[in-house]
Design a binder for these strands. Structure first.
Lengths: 231, 231
DNA sequence: ACAAAAGTGTTCTAACTACACCCATGA
DNA sequence: TCATGGGTGTAGTTAGAACACTTTTGT
């Protein structure tokens, strides 16, 4: 066996699938590339891992310098290894996904990009590299995860109403969910509690305002929401 | 931004958690290292990714040259990035797990190792690197996965009895499962069918022999087995 | 005939689904 | 007072848990 470091190593990129929820639909953040390869095409934000960085450090750096965002929930998704996934040479992509509330951040188009924009997940443009595939895996993961983890709350304001949360679940899962059953499941899970306040302004009954119960241990919570069977 | 390939890249290792089932308990395959670092200590089998290899290629190479095993089900687990996880320098580990039936293979102690051995998962020795951590994640994943995927069958012979499958599930999940309910759930899932044969020899009623239904699409199958609540 | 392990069925309970009416608000 | 959307309860069904007896075999 050859000694350590006599091997040539592939480059290691970290790519991010940034989900946001706004205007009552689920979006992903894409970046229009200024340079080759895939110049002027849309891709997921990403960057190369530096020797002294952990993956999460790289995520944070990308989010801050390319998008002006800091302090986020990130979770490792998968590592992609297709030999020809990058025309410049061998590049492994370790992908992460993250959830943000777009209202909290003003996007910055870093020096690397022509543009940075939110895209409705149902209307994505063509993506460079294998990013369409990465996005697809991320969406599957989000859909699975939202059923048994309080990740939905990362996408909303700190205070939110049950109808807002309900609509978020319907948007993410892409099937209708019974309002009343949803309410009962969520409340029974103990993950949210009422603030006692009500959201005023609308010309109809004012919905109660809830908050996520941070102190609760992330134990059993399984909404078990399912797409209604088709015949 | 610096041009592509002006970066120094970390080394990329692929580490394998190889689960086997024999002697009525769940085991992992460990390798005793011949060289530094962690000389004479036990670790997971692993190796460095070559430029022209996919992760699965590397897995196959490690399994073949270090263990004499080929042709396996492998699945990506997670990528580990602690900066000091390897004393030789920065090494990222992409880990995979795999399931084998130890009876099908004669282990080979490759030139790299002092020894290769199966260890009962309840009696692991100290492991080098962060391999104890990797193992722990793999076991969690296996426990989750066996509930909704027919992975259990990889660990058994092609033909098996229901009591054998039942015991495997109890060993992997580490809690008792009602025989009768287990039988019903497994049979209802449609993932196995009877061969019509019976396993003879024992001094008691001869159990029916089943096979995994390969042609079935991997759709809905959720055993939903749970550890009995403690008070 | 006995010991050992496999095969089988039912009752009880908890969880989920489906569904419709009343309430609060602003215009 | 009306239109809009939020809040609430129940009956019926289904899925899961708990549980014990009978059958087959080798000695």
């Amino acid at each position: 066996m050859k000694p350590f470091n006599s091997y040539k190593n592939p480059a290691l990129a970290v790519d991010l699938v940034v989900f946001g929820y706004q205007g009552e639909s689920l979006s992903v953040l894409l970046l229009n590339r200024k340079d080759e390869p895939f110049k002027d095409q849309w891709t997921l934000p990403g960057g190369f891992l530096q020797m002294e960085e952990t993956f999460k450090d790289t995520c944070a750096r990308i989010l801050l310098t390319k998008l002006g965002i800091n302090n986020l929930y990130t979770e490792q998704l998968f590592s992609f290894d297709d030999i020809n996934r990058d025309p410049r040479g061998r590049v492994i992509s370790v992908s992460y996904f993250t959830l943000i509330n777009p209202k909290r951040f003003a996007l910055v188009t870093g020096s690397m990009a022509n543009d940075v924009k939110w895209f409705n997940i149902a209307k994505l443009p063509a993506l460079g590299f294998d990013h369409r595939h990465i996005f697809k895996i991320a969406l599957e993961r989000l859909r699975a995860k939202i059923q048994y983890n309080p990740v939905g709350f990362e996408l909303l304001n700190e205070k939110f109403t049950l109808p807002e949360l309900h609509q978020l679940y319907e948007q993410v899962l892409d099937f209708p969910i019974d309002r009343r059953n949803f309410r009962r499941k969520i409340l029974d899970s103990g993950f949210i509690s009422s603030t006692g306040e009500k959201k005023t302004g609308a010309q109809n009954r004012h919905p109660d305002i809830y908050m996520f119960n941070k102190q609760l241990k992330s134990n059993q919570f399984h909404l078990n929401l399912q797409s209604p069977a088709k015949d």
